[in-house]
Design a protein around this nucleic acid. Structure first.
Lengths: 255, 255
DNA sequence: GACGATTTAGACAATACTGTCTAATTTGAC
DNA sequence: GTCAAATTAGACAGTATTGTCTAAATCGTC
C-alpha cells in the first residue's frame, strides 16, 4: 500500500459506530467485509468505498475514473477490480452502503420525535435540527442527492430504491407522529401527510437551494432554520391555546 | 444537413418570444446569432444550443460528447467547433442562454405579484403557481438545477452567477413584495426575508425532492401545492381578521 | 446562374479510460 | 519462519473522446 495518508479515508465514514446514537452501524450486506472487521482487507474495502463515494460525488459516475478512485483510496487499481467486478458494481456497493447507513440514522432520529411535550416548539426544533444535521445536510445526504439527481435516469433501480427508503419513509413517519400530536390535542391538522411535507419544507426553508448550491450549512444555520420553521409551523397549526407565545417579530436572525 | 427531425430542436426553446408574457426574448449576448434571425445560420445555432442543453442536462458535462450533441442537433461536429471554440465555450453559451431566458421570465412573473387584493389566497396561489410552472419546474429550471448541482464545483463562476441571478433575486424580490403587503395591513410578518423563504418553501413543499427525483410535477400538482402552501402561509401570517376562512380540513387533496 | 460563405463527412493524432493479465511483492495466519 | 492469500505496478488491447484539418458539397445572396 502506498504512503498516501489514511486520515482522508476515515473522514467520510464514521470509525465504527454511530457518533452518539448508540446503535451499531448497519452494513448493507453487499459491499461490506466478510473477513474480520479491523483486518487489512476490511480496511481496504472501506477505504475503497470511501474514496469511491467521494469521487463519484465530486465527478459523477462517468467523470470518476477507477484510477482516480484507486489513487484516492491509496490502493492499486487491480485491488478495486478484485473486490468489485466492475465500475457499476462498485457504484452499487457505494449507494447500498450509504443508504444502509442513512436508514439506520433515520430510525435513530425518528425515535426522538416528541410524544407529549410541554414545550412543543423547543422539542420539535431539536428534532428538526437533528434531522438536518445527521441526515439531510451531512455528507451522506449530499452524496445521495447529487448522485440520484445526476445518475437517477440511468439507474432506475437506484432511483426507485431511494424514493422508497428516502423521502417517502421520512414523510409518512413524520405524518404519523404529527397525527398523534394532533390527536393528543396539541395541533390542529387536517391532512397529516401534507402537514409533514410542509413541516419538512419549512424546517429546511433556508436550504432550499443549498443542496443545489453545493454548500453545506453550518450547524448554527441548521438550528436557526429549524427554529424559524417550527415557529411558523406552530403559528399555522398549533391549537389556539398554545399559539399566543410565538410572536412573529422574534424570529432568529439569519447571519 | 441531415434529415433528422427538426421538431425536437424547437421543443426546448420557445420559437421567438415569450409564450404569453408579452416581453421579447432577451438574448444573453454570448451565444446568440449576429446574423439575421430566421436565417439558416441562426437556426443552426439555436439547434445546437437546444441539443447541447438537452444532452448536458441528461449526461452531464463529461458524459455529453460533442458527437452526440451534433447528432442530436442534426449538425456536423465541425459546425459546432465552428460556432463555439470548444466544449467549455459551448457549455457556457448554453448556461448564459438559459439564464437570460429565465431572467426575463422571472421579471414577467414578479410583475404579477398581487398589490392589494380582496382575495389574497387566490391571488397568491395564482402567483405561486405561475412561478412553479414557468420558472422552477419547467425544463430550463430543471436544467439549471441539475447542471449547477453536477458541475457547480468545477465552474465556480457559473455557480456564483446563478446564485446572484437565481434564488437571491427571487427571494429578495418576493420579500419586498411581502413587506409591502404587511405594510398595507394584510400580513403580520416579522422578517420579510425569512417570510419569503418560507413562502417559497411552502409553495414548493410537495416538490422538495422532485428535482432530485428527476420527475416533473404536472400542472395540476403545481397548482395544488401552491394552494396548500399559500393556505398554510396565510394561516401563519395573515392578519387575524382574514384568518377565519381558512380551516385546516379543506386542504386540496394530493393525488 | 455565379460566387463567396457555410456546412459536411471523414481522416487524423493525442489523450484517457476500462477491464484483463502477469510477475513480483507484501501481508497475515499458523 | 512458512506458505497461501492478497496486493501491487505495469503492460496491454479495445474503445471513446477531443479538437484539427481537408476536400467536397451546399446554401444564400446578388
Amino acid at each position: 500500500m502506498n504512503d498516501t495518508d489514511k486520515s482522508a479515508a476515515t473522514a467520510f465514514r464514521p470509525p465504527t459506530a454511530l457518533a452518539d446514537g448508540g446503535q451499531d452501524f448497519i452494513p448493507s450486506g453487499n459491499g461490506q467485509c466478510y473477513t474480520r472487521p479491523g483486518s487489512g482487507q476490511c480496511m481496504k474495502r472501506n477505504s475503497i468505498l470511501d474514496a469511491a463515494a467521494r469521487t463519484f460525488c465530486r465527478d459523477g459516475f462517468t467523470g470518476a475514473s477507477i484510477d482516480l478512485i484507486a489513487a484516492e483510496a491509496g490502493v492499486s487499481r487491480q485491488t478495486i477490480y478484485n473486490h468489485y467486478r466492475d465500475k457499476e458494481m462498485l457504484f452499487g456497493a457505494v449507494v447500498d452502503d450509504i443508504m444502509g447507513r442513512m436508514n439506520a440514522i433515520l430510525y435513530d432520529i425518528l425515535a426522538t420525535f416528541p410524544e407529549e411535550s410541554d414545550n412543543l416548539e423547543d422539542d420539535l426544533t431539536l428534532f428538526a435540527a437533528r434531522l438536518g444535521k445527521k441526515l439531510m445536510c451531512n455528507r451522506d445526504g449530499e452524496f445521495l442527492r447529487r448522485l440520484i439527481q445526476a445518475e437517477g435516469e440511468r439507474y432506475p433501480r437506484l432511483l426507485e430504491t431511494w424514493r422508497k427508503n428516502g423521502p417517502a419513509k421520512v414523510w409518512s413517519a413524520i405524518a404519523a407522529r404529527l397525527a398523534r400530536l394532533a390527536h393528543g390535542g396539541a395541533l390542529d391538522i387536517g391532512d397529516p401527510d401534507l402537514a409533514a411535507r410542509q413541516f419538512l419544507a419549512l424546517v429546511n426553508a433556508d436550504f432550499q437551494f443549498c443542496g443545489v448550491l453545493g454548500q453545506k450549512p453550518t450547524e448554527q444555520e441548521i438550528e436557526d432554520s429549524a427554529r424559524n420553521g417550527v415557529r411558523t409551523f406552530l403559528r399555522a397549526f398549533a391549537r389556539s391555546s398554545a399559539k399566543a407565545d410565538a410572536p412573529a417579530s422574534s424570529d432568529v436572525a439569519l447571519s
